[in-house]
Amino acid sequence: MGIESADEVHDRTESGIPPIKRIVVNGEMPPVRVSQGEANGAPTHIAESFVIDQGAMAPAWTEERMKVESLGVRFDRKEAVKDVSIEVNSGEVLALIGPSGCGKTTLLRSLNKLVDLTPTAVRSGRIMLDGQDTDLMDDTLLRKKVGMLFQQPNPFPMSIFDNVAYGLRERGTKRPGKKELEPIVVDALERAGIWAEVSDNLSHPALSLSGGQQQRLCIARSLAVRPEVLLLDEPCSALDPISTAIIEETIVELKSEIAIVIVTHNLQQAERVADQVGFMYLGDLVEYGSVEQVFNAPMAERTKDYVRGDFG
Protein backbone atom coordinates (compact mmCIF):
# COMPACT_ATOMS: atom_id res chain seq x y z
CA MET A 1 0.00 0.00 0.00
CA GLY A 2 1.21 3.43 -0.86
CA ILE A 3 1.30 4.89 2.58
CA GLU A 4 3.79 7.66 3.05
CA SER A 5 6.12 7.61 5.96
CA ALA A 6 4.96 9.16 9.17
CA ASP A 7 7.55 11.95 9.02
CA GLU A 8 6.49 13.13 5.64
CA VAL A 9 2.88 13.44 6.72
CA HIS A 10 3.87 15.12 9.92
CA ASP A 11 5.69 17.86 8.05
CA ARG A 12 2.53 18.82 6.30
CA THR A 13 0.59 19.16 9.47
CA GLU A 14 2.74 21.76 11.09
CA SER A 15 0.01 24.25 10.49
CA GLY A 16 -1.79 22.46 13.28
CA ILE A 17 -4.53 21.00 11.14
CA PRO A 18 -4.70 17.26 11.23
CA PRO A 19 -4.69 15.73 7.79
CA ILE A 20 -7.78 14.00 6.56
CA LYS A 21 -7.57 10.35 5.85
CA ARG A 22 -9.74 8.22 3.73
CA ILE A 23 -10.49 4.68 4.69
CA VAL A 24 -12.06 2.13 2.46
CA VAL A 25 -13.29 -0.90 4.30
CA ASN A 26 -12.74 -4.12 2.42
CA GLY A 27 -12.48 -2.28 -0.86
CA GLU A 28 -9.96 -2.45 -3.62
CA MET A 29 -9.51 1.22 -4.22
CA PRO A 30 -5.91 2.12 -4.90
CA PRO A 31 -4.36 4.73 -2.67
CA VAL A 32 -4.75 8.23 -4.03
CA ARG A 33 -3.62 11.64 -2.97
CA VAL A 34 -5.90 14.57 -3.44
CA SER A 35 -5.29 18.16 -2.55
CA GLN A 36 -8.47 19.71 -1.30
CA GLY A 37 -7.42 23.26 -2.03
CA GLU A 38 -7.70 26.03 0.45
CA ALA A 39 -10.70 25.68 2.68
CA ASN A 40 -11.17 28.28 5.39
CA GLY A 41 -7.89 29.85 4.41
CA ALA A 42 -5.87 26.89 5.57
CA PRO A 43 -4.71 24.05 3.40
CA THR A 44 -6.24 20.68 4.04
CA HIS A 45 -4.89 17.49 2.63
CA ILE A 46 -5.92 13.99 2.30
CA ALA A 47 -2.80 12.72 3.91
CA GLU A 48 -3.33 9.16 3.04
CA SER A 49 -5.89 6.77 1.93
CA PHE A 50 -5.68 3.12 2.51
CA VAL A 51 -7.60 -0.03 2.23
CA ILE A 52 -8.65 -1.82 5.38
CA ASP A 53 -8.19 -5.46 4.84
CA GLN A 54 -7.50 -8.48 7.00
CA GLY A 55 -7.00 -6.37 10.05
CA ALA A 56 -4.04 -4.54 8.57
CA MET A 57 -5.24 -1.15 9.62
CA ALA A 58 -2.64 0.38 11.85
CA PRO A 59 -2.22 3.90 10.52
CA ALA A 60 1.18 5.22 9.79
CA TRP A 61 0.38 8.65 11.11
CA THR A 62 -0.43 9.60 14.68
CA GLU A 63 -0.34 12.80 16.64
CA GLU A 64 -0.43 13.29 20.35
CA ARG A 65 -3.75 14.73 21.49
CA MET A 66 -3.82 14.14 25.20
CA LYS A 67 -1.11 13.38 27.66
CA VAL A 68 -1.75 12.06 31.13
CA GLU A 69 1.10 12.80 33.52
CA SER A 70 1.24 10.80 36.77
CA LEU A 71 -2.50 10.95 37.31
CA GLY A 72 -3.82 9.86 40.66
CA VAL A 73 -7.49 9.71 41.63
CA ARG A 74 -8.84 8.78 45.03
CA PHE A 75 -12.34 8.51 46.41
CA ASP A 76 -12.20 9.09 50.17
CA ARG A 77 -9.57 6.54 51.20
CA LYS A 78 -9.75 4.37 48.13
CA GLU A 79 -7.09 4.94 45.52
CA ALA A 80 -8.76 4.31 42.18
CA VAL A 81 -5.92 5.39 39.90
CA LYS A 82 -2.29 5.45 40.98
CA ASP A 83 0.38 7.46 39.21
CA VAL A 84 -0.69 6.69 35.65
CA SER A 85 1.00 8.27 32.66
CA ILE A 86 -0.33 7.57 29.21
CA GLU A 87 -0.76 9.25 25.85
CA VAL A 88 -3.81 9.53 23.66
CA ASN A 89 -3.00 9.95 19.99
CA SER A 90 -5.22 10.89 17.15
CA GLY A 91 -5.36 8.39 14.35
CA GLU A 92 -5.46 5.44 16.68
CA VAL A 93 -7.68 3.70 19.16
CA LEU A 94 -6.45 3.23 22.70
CA ALA A 95 -8.16 0.43 24.60
CA LEU A 96 -8.07 0.28 28.37
CA ILE A 97 -8.57 -3.23 29.66
CA GLY A 98 -8.49 -4.79 33.09
CA PRO A 99 -10.70 -6.46 35.65
CA SER A 100 -13.67 -4.67 37.25
CA GLY A 101 -12.68 -1.92 39.65
CA CYS A 102 -9.18 -1.57 38.25
CA GLY A 103 -9.63 2.14 37.66
CA LYS A 104 -9.93 2.15 33.88
CA THR A 105 -13.28 3.92 33.88
CA THR A 106 -12.01 6.43 36.44
CA LEU A 107 -9.02 7.13 34.21
CA LEU A 108 -11.36 7.60 31.27
CA ARG A 109 -13.65 9.92 33.21
CA SER A 110 -10.64 11.98 34.30
CA LEU A 111 -9.89 12.83 30.68
CA ASN A 112 -13.00 15.01 30.43
CA LYS A 113 -13.03 15.84 34.15
CA LEU A 114 -16.34 14.04 34.59
CA VAL A 115 -14.78 12.40 37.63
CA ASP A 116 -14.80 15.82 39.28
CA LEU A 117 -18.57 15.56 39.56
CA THR A 118 -18.12 12.93 42.27
CA PRO A 119 -17.87 15.03 45.44
CA THR A 120 -15.39 12.71 47.15
CA ALA A 121 -12.99 12.50 44.21
CA VAL A 122 -9.53 13.99 44.61
CA ARG A 123 -7.35 14.20 41.54
CA SER A 124 -3.60 14.74 41.31
CA GLY A 125 -1.18 14.95 38.41
CA ARG A 126 -1.70 16.68 35.10
CA ILE A 127 -3.75 15.98 32.02
CA MET A 128 -2.80 17.91 28.90
CA LEU A 129 -4.96 18.47 25.85
CA ASP A 130 -3.01 19.75 22.86
CA GLY A 131 -0.30 20.93 25.21
CA GLN A 132 -2.69 22.78 27.47
CA ASP A 133 -3.38 21.83 31.06
CA THR A 134 -7.01 20.73 31.26
CA ASP A 135 -7.28 22.05 34.81
CA LEU A 136 -6.75 25.54 33.45
CA MET A 137 -9.42 25.04 30.82
CA ASP A 138 -13.08 25.69 31.22
CA ASP A 139 -14.91 22.42 31.89
CA THR A 140 -17.51 23.08 29.23
CA LEU A 141 -14.84 23.85 26.61
CA LEU A 142 -12.85 20.74 27.54
CA ARG A 143 -15.93 18.56 27.27
CA LYS A 144 -16.76 19.93 23.86
CA LYS A 145 -13.32 18.85 22.72
CA VAL A 146 -13.39 15.54 24.55
CA GLY A 147 -16.69 13.78 23.90
CA MET A 148 -17.95 10.72 25.69
CA LEU A 149 -20.15 7.73 25.09
CA PHE A 150 -21.62 5.76 27.96
CA GLN A 151 -22.28 2.14 28.79
CA GLN A 152 -26.05 2.53 28.46
CA PRO A 153 -27.40 4.29 25.40
CA ASN A 154 -28.82 7.53 26.77
CA PRO A 155 -30.49 9.69 24.17
CA PHE A 156 -32.41 12.59 25.62
CA PRO A 157 -36.21 12.44 25.53
CA MET A 158 -36.49 14.63 22.46
CA SER A 159 -36.47 14.14 18.72
CA ILE A 160 -33.57 12.53 16.87
CA PHE A 161 -32.68 15.88 15.31
CA ASP A 162 -32.78 17.73 18.63
CA ASN A 163 -30.58 15.10 20.24
CA VAL A 164 -27.81 15.64 17.70
CA ALA A 165 -28.31 19.41 17.74
CA TYR A 166 -28.32 19.50 21.54
CA GLY A 167 -24.62 20.18 21.95
CA LEU A 168 -24.67 22.87 19.27
CA ARG A 169 -27.35 24.96 20.86
CA GLU A 170 -25.81 27.41 23.24
CA ARG A 171 -27.65 28.83 26.16
CA GLY A 172 -28.36 32.53 26.28
CA THR A 173 -26.68 33.48 23.03
CA LYS A 174 -28.62 33.62 19.80
CA ARG A 175 -29.75 30.10 19.21
CA PRO A 176 -28.95 28.80 15.75
CA GLY A 177 -31.99 27.84 13.74
CA LYS A 178 -32.88 24.45 12.37
CA LYS A 179 -31.73 25.40 8.86
CA GLU A 180 -28.26 26.33 10.04
CA LEU A 181 -27.91 23.20 12.13
CA GLU A 182 -29.20 20.75 9.58
CA PRO A 183 -25.99 20.16 7.58
CA ILE A 184 -24.01 19.58 10.78
CA VAL A 185 -26.65 17.21 12.14
CA VAL A 186 -26.82 15.26 8.90
CA ASP A 187 -23.04 15.06 8.72
CA ALA A 188 -22.82 13.77 12.30
CA LEU A 189 -25.49 11.16 11.66
CA GLU A 190 -23.67 10.06 8.52
CA ARG A 191 -20.36 9.72 10.28
CA ALA A 192 -21.99 7.73 13.05
CA GLY A 193 -23.36 5.39 10.41
CA ILE A 194 -27.02 5.84 11.28
CA TRP A 195 -28.13 8.38 8.68
CA ALA A 196 -29.70 5.82 6.34
CA GLU A 197 -31.88 4.47 9.13
CA VAL A 198 -33.18 7.77 10.48
CA SER A 199 -33.14 10.14 7.49
CA ASP A 200 -36.90 9.86 7.05
CA ASN A 201 -37.87 10.38 10.67
CA LEU A 202 -35.59 12.99 12.21
CA SER A 203 -38.52 14.36 14.16
CA HIS A 204 -39.34 11.04 15.80
CA PRO A 205 -38.53 10.62 19.48
CA ALA A 206 -35.03 9.27 19.93
CA LEU A 207 -36.09 6.85 22.64
CA SER A 208 -38.22 4.95 20.12
CA LEU A 209 -35.06 3.71 18.38
CA SER A 210 -33.54 0.32 19.15
CA GLY A 211 -30.69 0.06 21.64
CA GLY A 212 -28.01 -0.20 18.98
CA GLN A 213 -29.46 2.72 17.02
CA GLN A 214 -29.69 4.75 20.22
CA GLN A 215 -26.02 4.15 20.89
CA ARG A 216 -25.07 5.24 17.36
CA LEU A 217 -27.28 8.28 17.79
CA CYS A 218 -25.29 9.07 20.94
CA ILE A 219 -22.12 8.80 18.84
CA ALA A 220 -23.63 11.26 16.37
CA ARG A 221 -24.59 13.55 19.24
CA SER A 222 -20.96 13.57 20.41
CA LEU A 223 -19.57 14.01 16.89
CA ALA A 224 -21.81 16.99 16.18
CA VAL A 225 -19.76 19.23 18.49
CA ARG A 226 -16.59 18.19 16.59
CA PRO A 227 -14.58 16.67 19.41
CA GLU A 228 -10.87 15.93 19.08
CA VAL A 229 -11.06 12.97 21.41
CA LEU A 230 -13.88 10.52 21.93
CA LEU A 231 -14.11 8.50 25.13
CA LEU A 232 -16.07 5.28 25.03
CA ASP A 233 -17.00 3.63 28.31
CA GLU A 234 -17.88 0.02 27.47
CA PRO A 235 -20.11 1.27 24.66
CA CYS A 236 -21.27 -2.17 23.56
CA SER A 237 -21.87 -3.92 26.86
CA ALA A 238 -25.63 -3.32 26.65
CA LEU A 239 -25.90 -4.20 22.97
CA ASP A 240 -26.45 -7.33 20.91
CA PRO A 241 -23.64 -8.77 18.74
CA ILE A 242 -24.87 -7.22 15.49
CA SER A 243 -25.17 -3.72 16.97
CA THR A 244 -21.76 -4.28 18.55
CA ALA A 245 -20.24 -5.12 15.17
CA ILE A 246 -21.73 -1.97 13.62
CA ILE A 247 -20.44 0.21 16.44
CA GLU A 248 -16.97 -1.34 16.17
CA GLU A 249 -16.96 -0.67 12.45
CA THR A 250 -17.90 2.94 13.18
CA ILE A 251 -15.08 3.23 15.71
CA VAL A 252 -12.53 2.02 13.18
CA GLU A 253 -13.86 4.45 10.59
CA LEU A 254 -13.76 7.36 13.02
CA LYS A 255 -10.24 6.87 14.30
CA SER A 256 -8.73 8.63 11.32
CA GLU A 257 -10.40 11.88 12.36
CA ILE A 258 -10.38 11.72 16.13
CA ALA A 259 -8.46 10.07 18.91
CA ILE A 260 -10.49 7.33 20.53
CA VAL A 261 -10.13 5.84 23.99
CA ILE A 262 -12.26 2.81 24.71
CA VAL A 263 -12.74 1.04 28.00
CA THR A 264 -13.83 -2.52 27.46
CA HIS A 265 -14.26 -5.77 29.31
CA ASN A 266 -14.29 -7.60 26.04
CA LEU A 267 -10.76 -8.64 25.13
CA GLN A 268 -11.75 -9.70 21.63
CA GLN A 269 -13.24 -6.26 21.11
CA ALA A 270 -10.03 -4.63 22.26
CA GLU A 271 -8.10 -6.82 19.84
CA ARG A 272 -10.46 -5.96 17.00
CA VAL A 273 -10.59 -2.18 17.33
CA ALA A 274 -7.50 -1.06 19.24
CA ASP A 275 -4.06 0.01 18.09
CA GLN A 276 -2.68 0.64 21.55
CA VAL A 277 -3.71 -1.23 24.68
CA GLY A 278 -3.32 -0.25 28.30
CA PHE A 279 -3.80 -2.96 30.90
CA MET A 280 -4.80 -1.72 34.32
CA TYR A 281 -4.85 -3.61 37.57
CA LEU A 282 -5.76 -2.22 41.02
CA GLY A 283 -5.28 1.36 39.87
CA ASP A 284 -1.89 0.77 38.21
CA LEU A 285 -1.20 0.93 34.54
CA VAL A 286 0.58 -2.40 34.41
CA GLU A 287 1.29 -2.52 30.73
CA TYR A 288 0.95 -0.18 27.78
CA GLY A 289 1.85 -1.01 24.22
CA SER A 290 0.64 -1.91 20.80
CA VAL A 291 -2.19 -4.36 20.54
CA GLU A 292 0.06 -7.07 19.08
CA GLN A 293 2.59 -6.69 21.84
CA VAL A 294 0.13 -6.69 24.75
CA PHE A 295 -1.87 -9.62 23.48
CA ASN A 296 0.88 -11.74 21.96
CA ALA A 297 3.95 -10.90 23.96
CA PRO A 298 2.90 -9.31 27.25
CA MET A 299 5.80 -8.31 29.42
CA ALA A 300 4.14 -8.36 32.84
CA GLU A 301 3.01 -11.59 34.44
CA ARG A 302 -0.36 -10.04 35.39
CA THR A 303 -1.07 -9.03 31.81
CA LYS A 304 -0.21 -12.51 30.61
CA ASP A 305 -2.67 -14.05 33.08
CA TYR A 306 -5.38 -11.57 32.19
CA VAL A 307 -5.22 -11.76 28.41
CA ARG A 308 -5.09 -15.54 28.72
CA GLY A 309 -8.31 -15.39 30.72
CA ASP A 310 -6.98 -16.68 34.03
CA PHE A 311 -8.77 -13.94 35.98
CA GLY A 312 -10.87 -10.86 35.47
Binding site: N112, K144, N154, F156, R171
Partner: peptide, 17 residues
Amino acid sequence: PKHVREASYALGKDQAS
Protein backbone atom coordinates in the same frame (compact mmCIF):
# COMPACT_ATOMS: atom_id res chain seq x y z
CA PRO B 1 -30.16 7.70 35.53
CA LYS B 2 -27.00 9.55 36.49
CA HIS B 3 -25.44 8.83 33.12
CA VAL B 4 -28.13 10.85 31.36
CA ARG B 5 -27.06 13.93 33.30
CA GLU B 6 -23.43 13.08 32.61
CA ALA B 7 -24.16 12.73 28.91
CA SER B 8 -25.30 16.34 28.93
CA TYR B 9 -22.27 17.50 30.91
CA ALA B 10 -20.04 15.51 28.53
CA LEU B 11 -21.36 17.65 25.68
CA GLY B 12 -20.10 20.75 27.46
CA LYS B 13 -23.39 21.79 29.03
CA ASP B 14 -23.65 23.26 32.50
CA GLN B 15 -26.05 22.19 35.19
CA ALA B 16 -28.61 24.90 34.47
CA SER B 17 -29.08 23.96 30.82
